[in-house]
Amino acid sequence: MQIHSELLDDNILKVTLEGRLDVEGTQAIDLKLTTLTATSRKAVLVDLSQVDFLASIGIRTLLTCAKTTSKRGGKMLLVNPQPMVRAVLDRSGVSSLIPVYADAETALGTLDAA
């Protein structure tokens, strides 16, 4: 499980996750992702295109980090999930709590509009 991050500008952080968000994978990135989202920012974009498995343990981490971001005045956005990962987000109810977008441009567009 890999995690990369890059600042798109001062206020928007893009985090790219890669691998399986199962027990082992989530443990591997949990601390790093929590740390990254703990800083006050306008938005955190989580790119899920390289994530090919998502279990409830991964959902737990995503929700915790989204809550943290929200408390610091920011917003977490999920971007470009694979179809089955998208199904997990929908069927677990996560997609109604954290917005999910097909691509980064659309996601960033909503930020500009807001």
């Binding site: 279990a55 915790t64 989204a66 677990s92 996560v94 109604s96 709590l97």
Partner: peptide, 16 residues
């Protein structure tokens, strides 16, 4: 839950 603030973090495994 309707919003992130009130949402439960866990307990989604069985649902899945």
């Amino acid at each position: 839950a309707d919003d992130l603030e009130h949402a439960d973090i866990g307990g989604r495994g069985i649902q899945l």
